[in-house]
Structures are given as C-alpha cells and as structure tokens.
Design a binder for these strands. Structure first.
Lengths: 228, 228
DNA sequence: TTCGTCATGTAATGGGTTACATGATTAC
DNA sequence: GTAATCATGTAACCCATTACATGACGAA
C-alpha cells in the first residue's frame, strides 16, 4: 500500500503519455527533461512504477513489438519492460493536470507542472503561474520582514546569504511576470479567432505562450576546459 | 543510535556557539539565519538535540541562571531547557568547519557552510567557495551537454525551464566569482600586515571578505499590503 | 476565560537513497 | 574475454514531516 510520491507519479505519467518507455530510459528522461532539480534513483522509480500498474494507470508490455517477445518467452531471458499509459492513466493524468491546489506552487511541484505545460490548457497554465508568483511574493514578504527584525544581529556573511536568496526569488518573480505576460498576449491574440471551445483534448497546449527568445545556445565558451 | 543529519547538526552547533539557547528559539533562528532554504520541524530538532547531548557536544541547563531553576524544581513545572555548547562540542564544530570534502559543495550544505563563514578561516572560505563554483560549473557542463543532445525533441516549455535553470546556475557562479574576488582582495590587502599566524582560534573570521554593498534595504514598498 | 504564542516532546508515516544482487548487450 | 553500460529489482536505512499530546504564560 501507499507509495505515492506526487511529483514522481505525475512526471512518470506525463512522460509516458508522450510515448511508452521502459524504466531505465524513463529515469534518464526524468533527470534531464524535468531535470536540473530531482534525480530519482531506481530504488524510487521501480517501486513507483509497480504501484502505478497496480492502480491501472499503466500496463507492462514485454520489449520489441512482437518478434522478440516470442523469441524468448519462457526461460531466464530477462526482458525489457515497456510501460504504456492506459486510457484510465491518461484520464488520471488529465485530472492531475487540471488540479491547481496550493501544492502546485511549491518549488519542485511547480517545476514538474511547468515541464508539462505543453500538455496543459492555457487557463490552467495561467493559474499555476500566478499561483506560483503570489507564493513567491509571500515568501519575499516574510523574508524582508524577518530581515528587518534581525538585521542588526546578523554578521555580514549571513546578511549576504539572505540578500542573495531574496534576489534569487525576485528574479524568479520577474521571470514569471514575463511568462504571464506572454501567456496573456497569446490569449488576446487569439481572442478574435473563430472559436475554440478548447477545454480538454489538450494534447496540444494551444501553443503561443512563450516569449521570443532564440539563441539559447550556450556560447561555446572557449578557454576554461575543466572537463573531466 | 544514529540520527546524524549533518547539516542540522552543523547548524545547531554553529548557532549555539554564538550563544546558548533553548530548542524553540533555536528553531526560529535556524529558519531565518540560515533560512530561506530549510525549515526544520520540532520533530527533527528535538531528537537531534538529544543525540548531540548524548554525544557530549551539548549540555542541557534549566532555564534562568539559578533563581527560577530553584523556584520550581520538582513538581510539574515544565522548564525551558537551555542548551549550551561544551568544550568538546566547540572542538567538534571547529573540526566540522575545517572539513572541505565534496559534500560541502552541495546546495544546502553549502548554504549552511556559508552562513557560518563569520567563524571560518579565510583559507577554508576560499576552498569552499571555489569548490562550490567548480561544482556548479560541472553541473552547467552536464546541463548544456544533455541540452545539446536532446534539444530537438523538447517542447518550448521544457526548453524554457531548462534555460531558466541554467541561467540560475550561471548567476550563482557570477556571485561566487564576486565573493572569491573580494576574499582575494582582502587577503592581498592583508599580505603586508604585521603577521597573523591565524589558523584557528578563528572566533573572528579575519573579516574583510565581502564586496561593498550597502543599501540592501528593501525599499519600503508602499502600496501593496497583502500582509496577513 | 479564552486565545495566541511559547515550549517540549513522541509515534506514525512518508518519501527517498544506498548498497547490493542479478544478468543481458555492446564495444573493444 | 572483459569492461562499460543497459536493465531490473530489493532490503536496509535515513532524514524529515505530520499529527498528536501536553502544558505554561500573557494579553484581550
């Protein structure tokens, strides 16, 4: 019983929605696609997959479409287990996507939500972005309040740490502002379009949400070659 | 047996080194002084304090210096328990401060280390800052490598998330650069001073490490009063 | 007198990692 | 043939949270 990670479950469902995969690959995608943040281990992932199967959200399929599966059916041969989202799983994920409770604004949860914005309807995207922003603004208030209360007693390094922390949060707020603005722009731009009725069947996220920003290319960075 | 949180233990020792405190207060300081990051709960803190006492790093003292302690010695009266660092505890903390193993460069561990830079010798500060920086540079490399590998397959939002993540890391690297630079400046500036021999007895961190940056003052921010 | 905050604790539970065990497949 | 990497799993532990239980103290 139990073993419900929330964020892991969500991410697994989201990735499998795009295409079936086996555990090993899933884990890698988890650590890059959502990445930066979480690095789930197999000890977490595999048990989680099992409970998802038990819940009926996933089914296990043996490796290559049909040939290999029959080539070595019974004996020791350990097969790759490919997980595929069931219809119920799809529905469940859709449910999760539409939930905008306060949890969704926490750091890691938010990142996971954002990673699947491509499959999220615009109004939900808006709610999540705005919720996150006000969550951060709250945090900011608390921080500067406690800073005001204690500033005298703190040494320079502690102060600097605090300052840098607040600046990081402020920076994320600015980022969210940009995102929200361009979501709004996208919405307004579509306001005069034929119709939409778009509520679910949200396989496509109604596109059009991101600020123009080509040249993400990491500048080749010559000099400095600490590569191991 | 067990119950060694590393970072919590470290932070508790560090705070108590500055002055004795009881658990409740300790917790608040933990969430502000180091704050922003961690918010330890009592369920974590109190058991930890016990093991620290058991290890001999701390001793428990009953509340007000002597009067109160005698005023209600036996019956139900629940006394504040003030924790004070023992000589061994002090020594132990000094040990921890001087350790610069790879753990010290991880996010939260690093923050805890930084929070006590005021009690850390300059050379250790340098090692920690530089270690942290190269840790982040590694991370940056991995991120852009995996980005290069997968960029085509990712949708715009995932990409944007990745980009923002990398930018955050880059920003911290720049911050570290500033800090390292001003540590170096402080060191050079002192190069011609009488002597120092300063190795430990590091109650004062040899000062002089931070970039000039007055006006941290959060601008009073009139308008907006969402305070609860 | 009741409410908020100070103050200390414990048991159950959660969510995750590490280390280990096993074995197939590929590249050299 | 042997090393790296792919691939799946389990058991033991770790760190921390939640919810609960208890109670004092001050202010409205």
């Amino acid at each position: 019983m139990s073993r419900r990670s929330g964020i892991l479950e969500f991410a697994v469902l989201g990735l499998l929605r795009e295409s079936p995969m086996h555990g090993y690959e899933l884990r890698k995608r988890l650590n890059t696609s959502l990445g930066v943040f979480r690095a789930f281990s197999y000890g977490t992932l595999y048990p989680c997959l099992k409970t998802l199967v038990a819940s009926g959200w996933l089914i296990e399929e043996s490796g290559g479409a049909s040939e290999e599966a029959l080539a070595a059916p019974l004996s020791g041969r350990r097969a790759k287990i490919v997980y595929r989202l069931t219809a119920e799983g799809k529905e469940h994920f859709e449910d999760l996507l539409s939930q905008t409770g306060p949890d969704a604004y926490e750091d890691e949860h938010f990142a996971a939500r954002f990673a699947f914005f491509g499959q999220t309807s615009r109004d939900v995207r808006m709610r999540v972005l705005e919720g996150r922003r006000s969550r951060l603004e709250e945090r900011l208030e608390k921080m500067s309040a406690s800073l005001a209360r204690t500033r005298e007693r703190l040494d320079d390094y502690t102060l600097e740490l605090q300052r840098h922390g607040m600046e990081s949060v402020e920076r994320e707020v600015r980022w969210l502002n940009e995102l929200i603005e361009s979501e709004r722009a996208g919405r307004d731009q579509q306001r005069s379009a034929p119709d939409s009725s778009a509520q679910h069947d949200s396989t496509s996220g109604e596109s059009g949400g991101l600020p123009r920003r080509r040249e993400t290319n990491p500048p080749p960075d010559p000099s400095d070659d600490t590569a191991k």
